[in-house]
Design a protein around this nucleic acid. Structure first.
Ligand SMILES: [Mn+2]
Ligand SMILES: [Mn+2]
Ligand SMILES: [Mn+2]
Ligand SMILES: [Mn+2]
Lengths: 220, 220
DNA sequence: AAAAATTTTTAGATTTACCTAAAAATTTAA
DNA sequence: TTAAATTTTTAGGTAAATCTAAAAATTTTT
C-alpha cells in the first residue's frame, strides 16, 4: 500500500512519461511543487518498493507494478471528475482539485460501483480516457487544433490544458467537448485561428489552439 | 485548517463527550487505536490551536470552534454514508470504513452539492442525525429497545452499535430501520426479548436489544 | 490516611516527507 | 576539449505523529 504522497509521485511520473521518454528529477519536483532534493529521496523509496526503476542521474521509469498503481489513481481521478460534473453539476473547470483528493480514497468496491453508477464512462469531462478496472483504455488518436489547415473539419474531443482559466475561456467561446468545427482561416501575422461553429464564428489565439484536441473528420 | 489526524481526534472527542462528561486520555487512545502518550501530545496541540480546553490530568473539552469542526466531520461522514447506500447500493454494514476516509475531503461546495443531490437527508443509514450546513440537527429522542415492556410498540429508528457483525445480524432477522415492532415477551431467565414484526416473530438476546433504538409509539 | 492501583504526563526516540546548502555528475557552449 | 551552466545527489536538519519506558498525579482500596 502506498501513501498519498507516493501515489501522487507515481501519477506524476506516469503523466510525465507520456510526454518525455526520460523522466527527470527537476520535472517531477516542479509538478509536485517541491524541491529536487526531496524528489531524489522519494525516488529512492519508490525504487526500494519496486515501483520504479532508478539509475542515479539517469532519470526514472515506472515498473509494471508502478505503472498499474499509477493507472489506478488516474482511473479514480477521472471517474470522480465525471461524478462531479454529471451528478453534482460541477463545471469542467471546477473538478480537478476535488478529484485530486478523492483519487486517494482506498476502496476497490467503491470505484467499481461508482463506475457502474456513472454508466461505465469512457472519457472524463476533459476528454481524457478512463481506464477500465483492468487498467485498459483506448489510445486516443487526437490531433491538436493548431495542426489543422484551413478547410479541415473535426470535433472537439479533448483539451491538453486543465487550468480553470483556460477551461472557462473555452466555455465562454462555446468551444466545449462534442462541438463540430471547421477551420475557416489562419492569420499569418499572429497564427490565430478563425473557427466556424454550427451557429457562430470565433477567433482563438495560437496558444489556445495548441491545447484543443480534435478528432478529425478527415483533412481537407 | 486541521490535518486528517486532528480531525479524527476532534470527532472522537465529540463522540466521547456525548456519553461521558469528562473525556479521558485513555478513552481517546482506545478509540484512536493509539497510546495514551500520543494522545497527550495531540491534546496539547489541539489546545494550542484553540480547539479544546485542556487542564493537565483533568481531561479535555471541545471549544466552540472545536465542536463546530467536529460536527462538520460528522456531517460529512453521514452524508457520504447515505450516498454509498442510496446511490451505490452498499449495505448499511459496509459503509463505515469508506466514510471514514471520505469525511476528510475538503470542499465545502462538494458537501453542499452532495447534500442537495441526496435530497437533504435528515438521518444516515444507521438512523444517526445529519447536521445541516450550519451544524444544527434535532436531538434524537430514542429509547433503547431493552427498556420497552411487554405490549409496547414502536419503530426501529436507529442502532447504537455499528459493527458489521451486529448490523448483518439485524439484517438477517429483518430488524432494519423503519420496521414496526411490538414487544410480545421478555424472558426472565436470560433477558432475551420476543419481538412481533408485521410478518413474523423473532427472538433477540438482551445484548442485541440494548443496541436497537426505538421511536416509541407510546408505552403500553 | 497510607498503600495500592490506575491514569496521565514527560523524556527520549523513530519514521515520513520535507527543507537548505554544498558537492558531484552530466550536459551544453565556447 | 576545456569551461560554464545545469541537473542531480548527498549531508545534515526540521516538524508531525507516533512509540516505549519511566516518572508524576489522581483515584480507589484498605
Ligand atoms: Mn483532473
Ligand atoms: Mn480530467
Ligand atoms: Mn459510520
Ligand atoms: Mn452512520
Amino acid at each position: 500500500m502506498q501513501s498519498y504522497t507516493e501515489e501522487n509521485y507515481l501519477k506524476i511520473i506516469y503523466h510525465l512519461a507520456e510526454k518525455t521518454t526520460n523522466v527527470q528529477t527537476n520535472a517531477i519536483a516542479e509538478q509536485m511543487q517541491t524541491k529536487p532534493a526531496s524528489v531524489t529521496d522519494m525516488i529512492k523509496k519508490l525504487a526500494d518498493k519496486g515501483l520504479v526503476d532508478y539509475v542515479k542521474y539517469q532519470g526514472v521509469t515506472l515498473t509494471e507494478t508502478g505503472r498499474n498503481a499509477a493507472i489506478d489513481i488516474v482511473r479514480k481521478h477521472r471517474l470522480w471528475e465525471v461524478f462531479l460534473v454529471d451528478k453534482l453539476n460541477f463545471k469542467w473547470d471546477e473538478v480537478h482539485d476535488v478529484a485530486e483528493e478523492l483519487e486517494h480514497i482506498r476502496s476497490i468496491e467503491l470505484i467499481e460501483r461508482l463506475d457502474e453508477f456513472l454508466g461505465f464512462p469512457k472519457a472524463d469531462p476533459h476528454g481524457d480516457p478512463i481506464p477500465d478496472k483492468n487498467g485498459r483504455f483506448a489510445k486516443t488518436q487526437f490531433i491538436k487544433l493548431i495542426e489543422l489547415k484551413v478547410g479541415d473539419t473535426g470535433t472537439i474531443t479533448g483539451v491538453s490544458q486543465h487550468s480553470s482559466a483556460f477551461l472557462k475561456h473555452l466555455e465562454k467561446l462555446g468551444l466545449t467537448l462534442g462541438k463540430k468545427i471547421k477551420i475557416s482561416d489562419v492569420t499569418d501575422f499572429d497564427g490565430s485561428v478563425e473557427i466556424q461553429l454550427a451557429d457562430k464564428q470565433v477567433n482563438i489565439s495560437r496558444e489556445v489552439a495548441k491545447h484543443i484536441l480534435i478528432s478529425s473528420n478527415g483533412k481537407n
